[in-house]
Write a protein that binds this DNA or RNA. Sequence first.
DNA 1: CTTGCTCCTCAAGTAACTTGAGGAGTTACG
DNA 2: CGTAACTCCTCAAGTTACTTGAGGAGCAAG
Lengths: 134, 134
Amino acid sequence: MGMTIGEAAVRTQCTPATIRYYEEIGLLRPVGRSANGRRAYAQPDIHRLRFIRRCRDLSFAIDDIRALLDVMDGQAVSCLSARDLTLGHLETVRARRTELEALERTLATMAASCTDTCVSGVAAECVLIEDLAT
Amino acid sequence: MGMTIGEAAVRTQCTPATIRYYEEIGLLRPVGRSANGRRAYAQPDIHRLRFIRRCRDLSFAIDDIRALLDVMDGQAVSCLSARDLTLGHLETVRARRTELEALERTLATMAASCTDTCVSGVAAECVLIEDLAT
DNA sequence: CTTGCTCCTCAAGTAACTTGAGGAGTTACG
DNA sequence: CGTAACTCCTCAAGTTACTTGAGGAGCAAG
């Protein structure tokens, strides 16, 4: 009835070490053990792990996932908290993406200026390095 | 002639703790001490710290900064290494930005679906939660 | 029966700092 | 001149989300 941590790992795209870690920090309550003392996973555990894995793929923080799991477990009054959490996360992602866009422009400009003008190749005189020293 | 770590911090937008950290990991060689045993910073140190700070603003990794500092110090043969490093970093940033764009779309869709259809507000039935459980 | 997995439990390492404890010297104010 | 507030010092541990490794035991296949 129970599968080993290795089998659970395959089914959830998590490594065994990660699964043990999730148990340790309480994302997964301690799972049953078979006679030989090894962890035995049942279907609900797999389901929960898949949920966690999907949240991590969406780069939710562990504490956010805790809250989302509470919603899934029906511990939350309504699902609005999950939506708000998602919207908050979306804002973080959007802000970071905007930063990265600016970063891309800056880096591209720097690299291009070096390509264009650093014919000498003298390291200390590189326009890119000079830019960084600004 | 030397300024305190606090003054250096103001001039470089780094905190004193960060400046000590950079010294510890060898980004900044151990700076002189005044009679009372406190660190004393001179202009070249400030220049170097500003360089480091700018690199961090551009989210270069510490090891990358080490290499860039070598170029600034004239330790590198040519500045091409700096340009290549910048281009490599640019690619990483670009890839990450693309990921975040996809993430934004997914999160926005999820949040919107909850807003649209979760009239009941029953947490466990939320379409957003169901999506995460997929 | 022996080789090779897989599992177990700690403990420490990763990136780039930040935070805190405990202690000493310094600066400003009255 | 005293004292309160500030800045500095060092060293250690905490942060995030895991990964890696040591050391040891059981299980499955040939």
